[in-house]
Simulated scan of single mutants.
Amino acid sequence: MTAFATPEDIAHRTDAAKEAAVAAGRELGLEITEGKVLYELFSVVVHLAPSPVVARIPTVLPHTTTLADLAKRQQQELDVAQWLHDQGTPVIPPSPLLERKPVQKNGFSMTFWPFTDEDKTKEPDYVKNSELTADLHKALKNYLGELDFLSSAEPRFVTEALDRLDNSPDIVDPQDLARAKQEWQVLEPLVSDENAFRKAFPNVDLQPIHGDSPPANIFASTNGPLFSDFELITRGPVEWDLGGLGLELEAAYDRGAARNDLRPLDKDVLRFVNSVGAIRVIAYLSCADQLPAMVEFMKPFINQWRDTDPYA
Rank of each mutant, 00 (worst) to 15 (best):
M110I: 07
T111H: 03
F112A: 00
W113T: 07
W113E: 11
F115I: 00
E118L: 14
E118W: 11
E118P: 08
D119P: 06
K120W: 00
K120P: 00
K122H: 05
E123L: 06
D125R: 09
K128S: 11
N129Y: 13
N129P: 04
S130L: 05
E131Q: 13
L132R: 13
L132C: 04
T133K: 02
T133F: 08
A134M: 12
A134K: 10
A134E: 02
D135K: 10
D135C: 09
L136N: 01
L136C: 05
H137G: 03
K138T: 01
A139P: 00
A139E: 02
A139V: 02
N142L: 08
N142P: 01
L144S: 10
G145H: 04
D148E: 09
L150V: 07
L150Y: 02
L150A: 12
S152G: 14
A153P: 04
E154N: 08
R156S: 09
R156P: 03
F157G: 00
F157K: 05
F157I: 04
T159I: 03
T159V: 09
D163C: 02
D163M: 08
D163W: 03
N167A: 13
S168N: 11
S168E: 09
P169A: 05
I171N: 08
V172F: 08
D173L: 03
D176F: 03
L177Q: 02
L177P: 10
A178W: 05
R179G: 07
R179A: 05
A180V: 13
A180G: 13
K181A: 06
K181G: 15
Q182Y: 07
Q182W: 14
W184V: 01
W184H: 14
Q185V: 11
L187Y: 14
L187Q: 10
